[in-house]
Write a protein that binds this DNA or RNA. Structure first.
Lengths: 257, 257
DNA sequence: TCAAAAGTGTTTGGTCTACACCCATGC
DNA sequence: GCATGGGTGTAGACCAAACACTTTTGA
């Protein structure tokens, strides 16, 4: 029945020993493929249940380092700036309870018990460019893939909520954190950038106004004209002017109301 | 040596048994006394070390409920809307390690060990009106008092950082959450409100412009003239128009740049 | 020459800022 | 009446939304 060797089980138990109990981390990573926002999801063993990448915190590492390690192990995505978007811990919240309890999986009782505990999770989000395609599942996970954020409502447990909370944080930090550097490739056009904004904000943006406003900030540096074979005027290629871009970001709080 | 009865020690151990290990909650509560922002701090036993109120999460309660309970137990402040502002957990982070280790305290080794563990903490903040003065220390705490946020740099451990992170969150959420209802008394004047904004934003605000903008939102309802014996024109009394106020709050994200 | 998409400009109205000025009160 | 702080108005700069017009390309 059991599909795990005793060695594997021991390594799982050993992992539990070395990590903080009842506390986990989940990483929501956004990618923009030119049309929609996507996030990587992982599949645990043979189950057809998809999860936001997540894991546990070693006793001797900070939570931020843990988040980076977990992401690297499970998706092979490395070197990201991660931002916290919230911590979730209703009394009923657990991780992988249903999966491990499934008799078909053949887990021993101690591991089922461990995963059936109530767990609090810390949510981080980040961003990768669209050229970032080298997803590769790490240990304990069978498969990783990108899915559109619009299609994340079927993820396991409260993971759909994690995605939408992460998206809210992404939206509100779009102007105050250097996110464009991560989202966009080295060179890009203004219409491409506009599509990114529309995807993040979830609403259309006026073409002319978008162009004017973004050019006024001087964060774009013209480097030529793209040569495409579309039946239309070829857009101008730009790259980010890092110095001006970082200057344009601001935590300044307006009075607003 | 020991200043604790065996009964007390047992109740502490029992509390540990029922809570999530290595995870704590801290609550930064802001009050505005008309001039400055203040937060309550608690003193643990006989030590002259002041802490942001904090505690642990029972296995059968959500983290939000835990935060409210902890706040009530330690300060007798009740019925607040709390907002999360971040979770902190560097590898070296602990709670009360120094205090419990102090031989003068006479704690048994098992309790010292428990408090010497690495702890992750979830930070919540909230707001009370200035009439909220009924601070009263709960169990395990000797004393509670209000201190100005400007004077929180001497708090224990990383608690000064918690205060400044909470203040940042407060600032950026001033326009999107119904914070005024909590900060201000039933009736108040515009100059009083302006002082609150200046305290939160940490900078002066133009009198005339502040007045115009806040009146344009229609969130204030005139109810008369205050009768003060100051040697100047008496300000107009207002109260919040709850319906318009809630409407005026918005998560709308501007394009900005 | 036409459609399609990119690039540009203009109009209108709002908002932000920095003030100047007036008003009600106690001394 | 005068100092003090509250209440009000306004000019100029700046910003935003809507939309019309022009340009460049492939077919």
């Amino acid at each position: 029945m059991t599909q795990f060797t005793e060695e594997t089980l021991e390594s799982i138990r050993n992992h539990f020993q070395r990590t903080i109990p009842q506390l986990s981390i989940n990483c929501v990573i956004f990618r923009f493929d030119g049309e929609t926002l996507q996030v990587p999801v992982v599949r645990f063993l043979d189950e057809d249940v998809w999860n936001i990448p997540g894991g546990f915190i070693y006793q001797d590492e900070g939570i931020y380092e843990a988040a980076k390690r977990i992401l690297l192990e499970q998706t092979r995505i490395d070197n990201l700036m991660l931002s916290q978007f919230g911590t979730f811990g209703s009394a009923e919240r657990s991780v992988a309870k249903d999966i491990t309890r499934n008799p078909k999986m053949g887990f021993p009782q101690d591991i089922i018990d461990h995963f059936s505990q109530r767990f609090v999770t810390i949510g981080y989000y980040s961003i990768v460019g669209k050229e970032q395609r080298k997803l590769k599942a790490g240990p304990f996970f069978k498969e990783v893939k990108w899915v559109n954020v619009a299609e994340t409502e079927h993820l396991a447990m409260d993971h759909p909520q994690l995605v939408s909370e992460a998206l809210l944080a992404l939206r509100s930090e779009l102007q105050s954190r250097p996110l464009l550097s991560s989202f966009m490739p080295e060179t890009f056009t203004i219409p491409e950038l506009q599509k990114l904004y529309e995807a993040i904000l979830g609403r259309p943006v006026d073409r002319g106004n978008f162009r004017q406003r973004i050019l006024k900030t001087k964060i774009l540096e013209k480097i030529g004209t793209s040569k495409q074979k579309t039946g239309s005027r070829p857009p101008i290629l730009y790259k980010l002017d890092q110095k001006n871009y970082l200057n344009s970001l601001s935590d300044d709080v307006k009075l607003g109301f």
